[in-house]
Simulated assay, not measured.
Amino acid sequence: LETHFHPFWKLPTPAVGAVRELARYADARGAAVFFVTARPGIIHSLTDWNLKQAGYPVDGLRVRSLPDLFEEVSAYKTEQRAEIEAKGYKIIANIGNNTTDLVGGHVERGFKLPDYDGALS
């Protein structure tokens, strides 16, 4: 999870410091940092802006298109990771706050973060 649970109308949403520092650490050592979210594509620009305002390196942001909204989140995220791999990237870490973020493979290792007592589930 890249930002704290926070009402969307209060922007920018602040970063989770430890996750941002990990992303910066990876970026500084040549790793690409991708974000795959279940958010709809209509807020792609806003999400990209927020990530950058919060201080994240962003090499790619994947959001759901209209047909993707009818697909299970875990299947969508697995497909996105597979597409990133198909472009020649090796996904060494996958970080998420929900099990749907971590299932389906196409990653060396997954890390589960808190989901704010179910507020994000």
Rank of each mutant, 00 (worst) to 15 (best):
39 R>W: 10
99 T>V: 13
43 I>G: 04
40 P>F: 11
60 G>S: 01
14 P>W: 04
63 V>Q: 08
109 R>I: 08
108 E>G: 08
7 P>G: 10
57 P>M: 03
81 R>L: 08
103 V>G: 00
4 H>C: 12
116 Y>W: 07
101 D>W: 12
116 Y>I: 07
14 P>S: 01
11 L>M: 15
68 D>N: 11
85 E>Y: 08
57 P>G: 03
36 V>W: 02
93 A>W: 02
10 K>F: 13
112 K>F: 02
11 L>P: 10
71 E>K: 05
114 P>L: 06
18 A>D: 11
81 R>I: 02
30 G>Y: 03
29 R>I: 04
69 L>K: 02
116 Y>K: 03
40 P>A: 13
94 N>W: 03
107 V>W: 02
85 E>R: 08
114 P>N: 09
99 T>I: 13
30 G>N: 04
46 L>Q: 12
112 K>L: 11
69 L>G: 00
85 E>S: 09
85 E>V: 06
61 L>Q: 01
69 L>A: 02
64 R>H: 07
25 Y>N: 14
59 D>G: 12
118 G>H: 13
62 R>A: 11
61 L>R: 03
38 A>L: 07
41 G>E: 14
119 A>C: 13
8 F>I: 11
53 Q>V: 04
22 L>K: 05
92 I>E: 15
27 D>M: 06
83 E>M: 07
81 R>C: 06
7 P>Q: 05
100 T>Y: 07
118 G>S: 10
44 H>T: 08
30 G>V: 04
86 A>K: 09
18 A>P: 10
106 H>D: 05
33 V>P: 01
102 L>E: 00
3 T>F: 02
5 F>M: 09
91 I>M: 09
106 H>M: 05
80 Q>K: 05
85 E>T: 05
87 K>T: 14
34 F>C: 14
50 N>L: 06
77 K>I: 00
100 T>V: 12
72 E>L: 13
29 R>M: 07
11 L>S: 15
19 V>D: 01
82 A>E: 06
59 D>F: 02
32 A>G: 05
2 E>R: 11
7 P>I: 05
78 T>F: 00
54 A>G: 02
8 F>K: 06
66 L>M: 12
98 N>W: 03
63 V>C: 14
5 F>A: 13
59 D>C: 07
85 E>H: 09
114 P>M: 08
1 L>M: 15
59 D>E: 04
104 G>E: 01
109 R>V: 10
91 I>D: 09
19 V>G: 12
99 T>C: 08
89 Y>F: 13
64 R>A: 15
75 A>Q: 02
93 A>F: 03
10 K>T: 14
69 L>Q: 06
79 E>V: 02
16 V>A: 06
94 N>S: 07
55 G>A: 01
98 N>R: 15
113 L>H: 05
6 H>L: 11
36 V>A: 03
22 L>V: 13
29 R>P: 04
83 E>S: 11
68 D>Q: 09
84 I>T: 05
4 H>T: 11
58 V>R: 04
43 I>F: 10
87 K>R: 14
36 V>L: 07
35 F>I: 08
14 P>K: 07
119 A>S: 13
36 V>H: 00
81 R>S: 03
27 D>A: 09
70 F>T: 12
34 F>G: 14
62 R>H: 09
91 I>V: 15
7 P>H: 09
77 K>R: 04
110 G>R: 02
95 I>W: 05
106 H>A: 07
79 E>W: 05
70 F>W: 12
